[in-house]
């Protein structure tokens, strides 16, 4: 299971990367493995406002449906359109082609985010 050390993580099994005031969000390798085959992701639209700790979408696997929670407050700047036809990218490459949304950062409580080491400790 991969937990890249240059990313940070939420307790809801999302990964977060911050660059130039833009937050990129996806789900972790552990999360995709637990979910199994992902068949559908519902994501917000570009320009939508998202709130820290609020749901920003839904992810459906064969067996289950789960909410996705935003690590930050801000405006959705980009959505991974490829996931509409190929949700399996999240299974295949959760930290790369399986990214979900980019948020133009308003506010984010960085103290809530976990390091790779702390995330690993949480899931094992």
């Amino acid at each position: 299971m991969k937990i890249p050390s240059d990313l940070r993580y939420t307790k809801e099994h999302e990964w977060v990367s911050v660059e130039d005031g833009v937050v990129t969000v996806g789900i972790t390798d552990y999360a995709q493995g637990e979910l199994g085959d992902i068949v559908f992701v519902e994501l917000p639209e570009v320009g939508d406002e998202v709130e820290e700790l609020d749901s920003f979408g839904t992810i459906e696997a064969v067996k289950t449906v789960s909410e996705l929670f935003s690590p930050a407050t801000g405006t959705v700047e980009e959505v991974n359109e490829a996931l509409e036809d190929k949700p399996e990218l999240i299974n295949d490459d959760p930290y790369g082609d399986g990214w979900m949304i980019k948020i133009k950062l308003g506010e984010m409580n960085e103290d809530e985010l976990l390091s790779a080491k702390d995330y690993k400790d949480m899931i094992v």
Binding site: G33, G36, D37, V39, V62, K63, N91
Partner: peptide
């Protein structure tokens, strides 16, 4: 296989992926 509890047993829920 990914193993889950089912009806008192430890059973495989998926191996290579449910859709496959």
């Amino acid at each position: 296989a990914k193993i889950v509890p089912f009806a008192g047993w430890q059973m495989p829920v998926s191996v290579s992926g449910i859709v496959q």
